[in-house]
Amino acid sequence: MLERQSNLKAWFYLAPAMALLSVFTFYPLFNAFFLAFLEDFEFLLGTASGFTILGNFQKVITSPNFAIAMKNTSVITFISVPISVVVALLISVALNSIKKFQSIFQTVFFLPYVTNAIAIGMAFAFIFHTDFGLLNTALGWIGINPVNWIGLGASWNTAMFALLVYTIWGGLAFKIMVFLSGLQSIDKQYYDAARVDAAPRRRVFTKITVPLLSPMIAYITITSFIGAFKAYRTIIGMFGTSLRPPGTLSKDSLITIVGLVYDALYHADATGKISEAAAASIILFSITLTFTLIQMQINKRRVHF
């Protein structure tokens, strides 16, 4: 280790953050956990009839949309995260390597951040429109017939595809900003040395950039997975509160676990609903935590700290 243990000093540095987190993060979190084990909790009155260990979890798992929500959450997470991380990494490295127009490109890739959510929704509706959408127009050039992506009665498959494109788009700006700032912290000496050795670009990328950027890659991957497990707003943005392509039944719904949480929270005035929201959150938490621990285990071997 770097130094002998310095507990007191460490807590001095941690104190401001920990004090705030205790009040506004840990306390509400424990509160939420606690609610999941109350039976027939009346949120508006603050009364419950007793404790239950599994009752609220059982309610969540047997609720009609649980299986669909699990499926959607997994698909969104395991497809969108790897693609968006790789694409963002490539864009950042490309952006970092150019000299001309660098500032313009950097601004362009930042703009999604300041784009109004309604405009984003409208633009994607246009991209995926069956009759005159950009995507179907482009497909037409290569002789593919128009696809009903998100229109009336669209299938789960095409709607999910559109949602994934939207999700990946939505995550790019943040990831690029993080990678760019991470790339700045890499010592230029490494690249100078590589240039002297006339190392090919791909080698520079895999042997210098990726390893030295690995803390940022680890950060982005872990937080992106956590974020994707919590996907919900993107679905509202694309499909509205019905969470599905118009004119379809709930088997084609794109609801996620957080969708279930929202749904239960919305009914917080009903008996026990807030406990169901808490239980659904704990289920999500357990899945995410397990997955994150596995990732950290893998990272421990790969990440060049």
Binding site: F30, F34, L38, G46, T47, S49
Partner: peptide, 21 residues
């Protein structure tokens, strides 16, 4: 810490009453 918070939440916010409301 966890148990403490539990106890706190228990006494602080929620009234447990197993007789019918």
């Amino acid at each position: 810490f966890l148990m403490g918070t539990f106890a706190l939440a228990l006494t602080g916010c929620v009234e447990i009453d197993d007789t019918p409301y």
